[in-house]
Design a binder for these strands. Sequence first.
DNA 1: ATCAAATAACACATATATGTGTTTATTTTT
DNA 2: AAAAATAAACACATATATGTGTTATTTGAT
Lengths: 74, 74
Amino acid sequence: MINIRDKTYILKFGNNLKRLRNLKDLSQEKLAYDADIPINQIGRIERGEINTTISTLNSIAKALKIHPKELLNF
Amino acid sequence: MINIRDKTYILKFGNNLKRLRNLKDLSQEKLAYDADIPINQIGRIERGEINTTISTLNSIAKALKIHPKELLNF
DNA sequence: ATCAAATAACACATATATGTGTTTATTTTT
DNA sequence: AAAAATAAACACATATATGTGTTATTTGAT
């Protein structure tokens, strides 16, 4: 069961992803396509609704052309 | 469904965790206790059996007293 | 104000991470 | 070599991420 600290963390993660995606001027749709992930998944992650996995993190980082650790840089 | 690239990534992640845990001279048991995670979970992650979540990554990083991104530094 | 693009918000099935417990194997210490 | 400590290997239930599809809302441009 996800606790308040986890919720805070995944929310921050989502915000950071949104920030980086906008920096690269990509739509959720384009990012989803490039990362081969459903667009809804991107939205759920950005909104902090889900606690995504490291492999998804890695796929997103590849699509953003950044190192995975950048996504944790907040 | 997890593909070969994901498998490779989660295996590398596990190896890196094991490396960092040994650097800090912690047993799986102690790390599990500090991170408030079942010991079996630590083992499964280190062996690359599971594709863990960012909140678990965060808990482990806290217990190791490192920044979460260090766990992706490989 | 209208239209189009982008994002959010639903629902639902399936795969898998988590959590717990127990047993076996390996590694380290004495 | 024996004992102790550590890690691996099982099984199983539950929670949740993923994947897919559809509809509604919001945002930005004209």
